Every structure is written in C-alpha cells, then in structure tokens.
Amino acid sequence: MINERPQVELIVGGLHHDMNAVRLHLLTLLDEYELARVGCHSDFGNGSALADADFLITYTNNVIPEGAALKALEGFLDRGGRWLAIHGAAALTCFQPPPVDIGGISLPGLTDTPDLAPEYMALLGVRFVSHLTQQPIVVRRGPAAHPVTEGLMPFEIVDEPYILELRGEGDVLLESRYTGEAPGYVAGPWLDDEPRPQLVHHRHGAGEVMYLAPGHACGRYDLRPFIDEVPEQPGPWADEAYIGLIRRLIAWGMRC
C-alpha cells in the first residue's frame, strides 16, 4: 500500500438500483477496518481521487470513466491498486426503440448493450451483455483457485442471472449455471447449459480486479419513470452467505 492508513475510494451511483441501501451496506462493512479512510463518490469525476487510493470499490450502472478519469483508473491499476467491481459496474446500456411493456414496466425500447467502452471493459476484464429474469441461482467455486474463495461452500441467492463476456485473461473463481429467456433485452435467449462466470479475477499492470456479478438491489421507487412503484428487492444483500463473500473481497482489497 502507498498509505500508512489504507485509502479506500467508494463509487456508488447510477440509476434503477437501490444505491442508498448498497452504499450503506458497503460503508458498514468498511467500518470494520478502523484504520481505513473512505472517500464516497457517485462517479469517477476527473479521477483525482484515485491518485492516492489503495483500494477502489464500485457499485454502478451506466457510470463509465472517460478521458482523464479513465487514464487515472488505468494508472491506479498500473501501480498496484486493487479494484472490487460489483454487478452493474460492467454495464453500459441503452434502449432500442420501439417502446415495449415488460411485465407492466413501460420501457422506451428493448435494452441493448453495445460495446461502446472497450478500454474500460478491458481494464475491468468483463462486459455485461444481458440477464435473465430475477430468480434463485446457486453459486459455487469455479475452475480457478484463490484465497478469497478457499473453502467457500455453494450458496443460493436471488439475483439477476448475468450473461458476461470475458475481456483479456482472467480467472473464474465462482460460477453458476442457468438457461432461459432475457425479457426486455436485445441479446437472448440463453439456452446453452454451460457454466456462467460470477466472480472473475483479472490483472492489469501491477494491479488486480475482482468483478462480482451478483448484487442486484432495487427500492420501491428506483424504476421510475418506467413504473411508479415496485416491491422492494434487497437481492443477495439480505443473504448472510453473500455478505460473507463481500467481507472476503474487502479483506482482499485491504490486503488482510
């Protein structure tokens, strides 16, 4: 680490997810480290906060660094920073007209995921393509071994089953299996019964990235203006096994 007291930068921002709840969860877990200093942001800004950072955590949706912020992110990894990216941090979406109604949710069109930020996705090591309907999935250790997942038993959570595209070299530490339709998405259905990455470890320069696909959460009003209210969806953030995994990942980022 470059700092005597670990400097953590937490970026939580974007739309259509319960950012307030997730931010509180992450801050509560980070509060277990008395020496840590935590900066909170809603986007990457100009990247200046990464200059002195040891550990970066991002829970975002359609929040992509560009220009100076992208260079700062690359520099952070080049010099050995560790980055934990969760759920929509791999997502860059837009709507493809005409308008559609998906289960009472009125959208401007199907959700598309064009490859418009290849440099960012290369740093992250994955790109979000689509997801199935929210449902229970079983997460288990993947083909690669790592201290973060050592001894981790399979666990079931309710989440959006993500379809990911790996970028560059990476180790799949956790995986799941599922098939089905992808309502509301351009890409789909996904009918091949094959392992789906859930936790990917990726290296860039002297730095490391952990990307964790599960992590959906949605509050009552988070899908406005598409629908006025929805039932609260805490997703895996209400699950002890998932929180235990987040603890492991934070310990990794803090080099504990």
Rank of each mutant, 00 (worst) to 15 (best):
residue 47 G to N: 08
residue 242 Y to K: 02
residue 19 M to Q: 12
residue 44 F to R: 07
residue 214 P to V: 11
residue 198 Q to S: 12
residue 20 N to C: 00
residue 136 P to H: 05
residue 211 Y to L: 08
residue 190 W to I: 12
residue 50 L to R: 06
residue 92 L to G: 15
residue 58 T to L: 10
residue 164 L to T: 04
residue 37 R to Y: 01
residue 232 E to T: 14
residue 12 V to K: 03
residue 188 G to Q: 06
residue 224 R to K: 15
residue 98 P to C: 09
residue 222 D to H: 07
residue 67 G to F: 02
residue 156 E to S: 15
residue 218 C to M: 14
residue 181 E to R: 13
residue 216 H to Q: 11
residue 96 Q to I: 11
residue 64 I to F: 02
residue 228 D to M: 08
residue 129 V to G: 02
residue 105 I to T: 14
residue 196 R to N: 11
residue 15 L to Y: 08
residue 235 G to W: 01
residue 104 G to T: 04
residue 144 A to S: 15
residue 131 H to G: 08
residue 216 H to P: 00
residue 2 I to Y: 00
residue 95 F to W: 12
residue 96 Q to M: 12
residue 34 E to S: 15
residue 231 P to Y: 02
residue 11 I to G: 09
residue 128 F to Y: 15
residue 77 L to M: 11
residue 230 V to I: 15
residue 119 E to R: 15
residue 197 P to E: 04
residue 111 T to V: 15
residue 43 D to N: 14
residue 101 D to P: 01
residue 174 L to F: 10
residue 24 L to S: 14
residue 147 P to Q: 04
residue 43 D to Y: 03
residue 53 A to C: 09
residue 50 L to Y: 09
residue 193 D to Y: 06
residue 76 F to P: 10
residue 175 E to L: 09
residue 147 P to K: 07
residue 53 A to I: 01
residue 216 H to K: 11
residue 238 A to L: 03
residue 164 L to Y: 06
residue 55 F to C: 07
residue 214 P to W: 10
